Simulated scan of single mutants.
Amino acid sequence: MKPIPVTLATSSVYPLSVHDGFAIAADLGYDGVEVMVTNAPTSQDPDALNELASRYNQPVYSIHAPTLLLTQQVWGGAWNKILRSVKLAERVGAEVVVVHPPFRWQSEYASQFREGIKELMHRSGIKIAVENMYPWKAGGQEARMYLPHWSPIDRDYEHVTWDFSHAAIAGVDSLEAFQKLRERLAHVHLTDGFPNGRDEHLLPGYGSQRCAAAMEWLGDYHRTHGYDGVVCLEVSTRKAKNPGEREEWLRYSLDFAHTHLGQ
Rank of each mutant, 00 (worst) to 15 (best):
residue 147 L to S: 12
residue 212 A to K: 15
residue 184 R to N: 11
residue 210 R to F: 04
residue 239 K to P: 00
residue 254 L to R: 14
residue 202 L to S: 09
residue 261 L to H: 09
residue 150 W to M: 08
residue 46 P to N: 12
residue 47 D to Y: 00
residue 240 A to Y: 00
residue 58 Q to G: 04
residue 106 Q to K: 06
residue 56 Y to G: 07
residue 34 E to H: 03
residue 192 D to L: 12
residue 135 P to Q: 12
residue 146 Y to R: 07
residue 213 A to S: 08
residue 42 T to Y: 00
residue 166 H to I: 10
residue 87 K to W: 06
residue 225 H to T: 12
residue 114 R to L: 07
residue 142 E to P: 02
residue 220 D to A: 15
residue 30 Y to T: 01
residue 242 N to G: 03
residue 133 M to W: 01
residue 244 G to W: 00
residue 169 I to E: 03
residue 1 M to W: 01
residue 37 V to G: 05
residue 56 Y to P: 05
residue 77 G to T: 14
residue 85 S to Y: 01
residue 123 R to I: 12
residue 258 H to L: 14
residue 179 Q to F: 01
residue 22 F to D: 03
residue 66 P to E: 08
residue 190 L to S: 06
residue 240 A to D: 10
residue 15 P to R: 12
residue 140 G to E: 10
residue 201 H to D: 14
residue 160 V to L: 05
residue 78 A to V: 05
residue 261 L to F: 01
residue 36 M to V: 11
residue 142 E to F: 01
residue 180 K to M: 14
residue 58 Q to C: 08
residue 37 V to I: 14
residue 210 R to A: 10
residue 53 A to S: 15
residue 69 L to K: 08
residue 5 P to H: 11
residue 3 P to R: 15
residue 214 A to E: 12
residue 124 S to F: 00
residue 176 E to W: 00
residue 64 H to I: 08
residue 13 V to M: 06
residue 92 V to L: 06
residue 37 V to S: 04
residue 195 P to S: 05
residue 1 M to E: 07
residue 173 D to M: 09
residue 41 P to M: 08
residue 106 Q to A: 13
residue 234 E to T: 01
residue 161 T to F: 01
residue 62 S to A: 15
residue 122 H to R: 15
residue 242 N to H: 10
residue 24 I to V: 14
residue 193 G to T: 05
residue 78 A to K: 07
residue 167 A to I: 03
residue 81 K to Y: 02
residue 165 S to F: 02
residue 223 R to G: 13
residue 90 E to A: 08
residue 258 H to S: 05
residue 218 L to K: 09
residue 156 D to P: 05
residue 149 H to W: 03
residue 72 Q to T: 06
residue 225 H to K: 15
residue 63 I to P: 09
residue 191 T to V: 10
residue 156 D to S: 13
residue 39 N to L: 10
residue 201 H to I: 02
residue 254 L to C: 14
residue 230 V to Y: 03
residue 14 Y to W: 06
residue 51 E to K: 13
residue 233 L to D: 11
residue 253 S to H: 07
residue 169 I to D: 05
residue 253 S to C: 15
residue 170 A to Q: 10
residue 179 Q to M: 15
residue 129 A to Y: 01
residue 198 R to P: 00
residue 249 W to G: 04
residue 132 N to H: 02
residue 161 T to I: 06
residue 91 R to C: 09
residue 6 V to R: 06
residue 115 E to F: 02
residue 239 K to E: 13
residue 157 Y to T: 08
residue 97 V to K: 13
residue 206 Y to R: 15
residue 1 M to N: 11
residue 257 A to Y: 02
residue 92 V to W: 06
residue 89 A to H: 06
